[in-house]
Amino acid sequence: MEKSEILSQVTEIFRDVLDNEEIVLADTTTANDIEEWDSLSHIQLIVAIEKDFKIKFTSAEILSWKNVGEMIDNISKKLA
């Protein structure tokens, strides 16, 4: 799967979980950029992404991403 495809799928998940249709994600987006993205919803997002892509992150991975780009890279690696 292309990274751009993953990004758009992840964007949909963010919009759904955070209940905000206006969210636009880029590789450089961080939790500081999105109001609803706090430590609680972060867990919801991870669980939703795991379900959607049928993958499982390790606990180290969950805490390692600095921005959306790194998260996408991680998903992409798991799907490969």
Partner: peptide, 8 residues
């Protein structure tokens, strides 16, 4: 969920 437990 062990990974969620570990991180939260």
């Amino acid at each position: 969920d062990s990974s969620v437990y570990t991180s939260t």
